[in-house]
Every structure is written in C-alpha cells, then in structure tokens.
Design a protein around this nucleic acid. Sequence first.
DNA 1: ATCTTATCGTTTAAGCTTAAACGATATTTG
DNA 2: CAAATATCGTTTAAGCTTAAACGATAAGAT
Lengths: 154, 154
Amino acid sequence: MPTHYKGNRQDTAALNAYINLVRASETVLTRAGEDLAAKGVTLAQFGALEALFHLGPMCQHELSEKLLRTGGNVTYVINNLERRGLVKRERMKADQRQIVVRLTSAGLKLMERILPGHVQAIVQEFSRLSLEQQQTLRRLCRTLGRGTGSETEA
Amino acid sequence: MPTHYKGNRQDTAALNAYINLVRASETVLTRAGEDLAAKGVTLAQFGALEALFHLGPMCQHELSEKLLRTGGNVTYVINNLERRGLVKRERMKADQRQIVVRLTSAGLKLMERILPGHVQAIVQEFSRLSLEQQQTLRRLCRTLGRGTGSETEA
DNA sequence: ATCTTATCGTTTAAGCTTAAACGATATTTG
DNA sequence: CAAATATCGTTTAAGCTTAAACGATAAGAT
C-alpha cells in the first residue's frame, strides 16, 4: 500500500519508506507482544525485566534511560511488576532519592523460563530475511535512528 | 547498543535487527508526532484525517481496516476529532449499522494547511538515507511485514 | 416469517505513554 | 552555613490501544 500523496520522487521514496518502516515495526511488535502475552507478561514489562536480567539491579532513573521512557512511565511499569512480585524496590542509603529495582527470585525464574523462547520467536520472525538482509536492515535503521548530531554512541 | 543476549550468529543478527528496527520506528514516530503536536493534532488523529482526506468519506469499519486499528479505537479517535469539529458522523440510510465519517470544512482546511509541511518533515527525516537506501529499507520492511502467508496484497 | 448468524459501532477495563507539576533529597553557590 | 539549583521518583490528566461484552441492525437459513 504505497502513499497516496502526489509528490516528486524524493517525497514518494521517503513516504513509502516511512510507512513500511512503521508498519513492519508494528507487525513485529504485535507478534512479539502476542508471544509474551501467552507467557504472561506485556512487552513493556518484559523490557524492564530484560534490562534487570542482563544488566543487574539499577535505579529507576537508570532504567528510564535504558528503556528510553519517561520516569513516570517507569514508575507505572515497575508498580505493576512489583505488585506481581517479579521485582522489588530498595531505597538507596547513599542517595535517599534513588530507588534500586532488582528482580525477585520469582522474576529471575520467570525470565530464565521465558527468555529463550521469546528470543526464538523473534529469530523466527526475522527468518523471512537472510542474515545479510538482517544486517542491512540493522545498518539502515541505525542510520535513521541517529539523533540530530548530539549523540554519544559509537 | 547491541543485544546482551549470548547466542549464536543467527540469534544475534535477528535480535540486533529487531532492536534497531523498533528503535528507528520509535525515533521517526516521535519526531513525526512532535511535528504534528506543533500543528495541533496527534499522530492517531492525523492518521484518520489523512485517510479521509486522500480516500474520501468512509464508515468506521472501513477506517479501522485502513488504519489497522480496532473498532473501539476508531470510535475513540473519531470522538476526539468530532469534538474538535474536524469530522462529522452521518448514519447511513442504506445500512443503519454503518456510520459514515467525513471531513468538515474545518478538517479539510486543516489538512490542506498542515499536510505539505508534515510530508516535508518526514522527507527531511529520511534524508539521512540516500534514495536507494530508502528503497532498500522499504523492500526489507515489506518482506518483514508480510503476514503468515494469507495476505492478499501484491 | 421466524430463527440464527454475522456485522457495525459503543462501552468498559486494563495497560502503555507523555508532559507537567510536585515533594523530597542532594548538590552547588555565595 | 544558607540559599539557590538540580536530581529522583510520584502523581495527575490526557491520549492511544486492545480485548471482550454488548445492543442494534442486517443477512442468511429453514
């Protein structure tokens, strides 16, 4: 479904790339979300759990930076995870403003149980593309995702 | 920021493509949303307005198919647009279940005023990629976005 | 014609997300 | 030290999104 906008060649190429990029992302996210729903967590919850699993305990501010979400959003998602007993909060002694979030044993067990299958679901999803195509896609998306020039990342 | 998951080559390529695809989409959508916010509408509202602008009046069910959203979501977004006087609803005589949504003159004027600038914002965003790269990105995303094999689209 | 089934739009509950205002705690500055 | 500034987490309001249940209308079956 190409764009209906009548413009020049540049405009058409950009709009078509835009719509297909967003659609592809929605498709992939929807399927990943369905996989996780069957495992009992949401995508947002999994994102937080995954960061804690791979990077270890961290304060909410740090989590908000890793997840590219606002502080208020992290409060909300962590509330839901804490209510389900998957993470726990601990106020830091050194800096009373910060709250360290860590996986509970239940949270750790959950991740050990569902992570491999979720990875395979994503691998399966991307098997529509060859290895080389996946790398090309990654490279183009990285170029597109770069900021306005004030980034620090290599 | 590559994945921290320790897996084989296939897994790593898929996960990296996944994370960068989603991030790029979020980046582009955020910027498009900021552009539209400055123009006074949300991305979801613009999506509905744009469909009505380019395809003409249609019932909510049709709109939900074009926008790839649920019926309940269309009800919600159209409510907000109607409240702002940008669209109006008309119950169809032929089929009393259907409700045709059409742009008001205010909605039409708004789109004529903001659409060109929004297109240019997207073109600007994608100017990080060459024309050829945009076409490659589009092709890869289309492949990825295809359904499980039950699609009708060419 | 009546009964069954399907379609269309709405409502509700739950979750995600942001921006903005706020309180508590740290840090910096004069 | 005291005052101003900055950081961290929370809360609120608004919007987006879905799934599921529902009522109204239409289409199909017997």
